[in-house]
């Protein structure tokens, strides 16, 4: 769906699924300062104010239009141990993987380890 859902309370992060791979990705800031997707939830850019949230929403819109991601939306988070953690258990699931399979998904480093190496 192209229409952006209602903005959640801040602070928030932007997550989506990569169109071709399906992996959960998070908007983060690249070395250049531009926004880029990462598979690592710890690197997600935290939007604390309206301007930052609007920037993430605009990125969601343009990335959807460019056929890079689907199902992009903002998720409200708390900072725990210095990292953004979604407040809702459904979204936490997306940052981890299936709870019955700790050997799979982000909790097992899927897609993240490779990214850190790169």
């Amino acid at each position: 769906m192209a229409a952006a859902p209602k903005r959640p309370p801040l602070p928030a992060i932007l997550l989506a699924n990569d169109l071709l791979d399906g992996d959960v990705v998070f908007a983060s800031v690249a070395a250049t300062g531009a926004l880029a997707w990462t598979r690592d939830p710890a690197l997600a850019l935290v939007a604390a104010d309206d301007a930052a949230a609007a920037r993430l929403e605009a990125y969601a819109g343009s990335e959807f239009a460019a056929q890079h991601v689907v199902d992009a939306y903002l998720v409200d988070i708390a900072i725990e141990a210095g990292q953004p953690v979604p407040r809702h258990y459904r979204e936490r699931m997306k940052t981890l993987g299936p709870s019955n399979r700790p050997d799979l998904g982000k909790q097992a480093g899927d897609g993240i380890a490779a990214e850190r190496r790169a």
Binding site: D21, G22, Q67, V70, R90, M93, K94, G105, K106
Partner: peptide, 26 residues
């Protein structure tokens, strides 16, 4: 879908009719 001929809204029923869902992680 990738070249923009089909929108996501148009593609979704086509992928579903081929058994492809988007779940939480993948």
């Amino acid at each position: 879908r990738l070249n923009g001929s089909l929108t996501e809204d148009e593609f979704k029923p086509l992928r579903l009719k081929n058994g492809v869902y988007l779940q939480l992680h993948a």
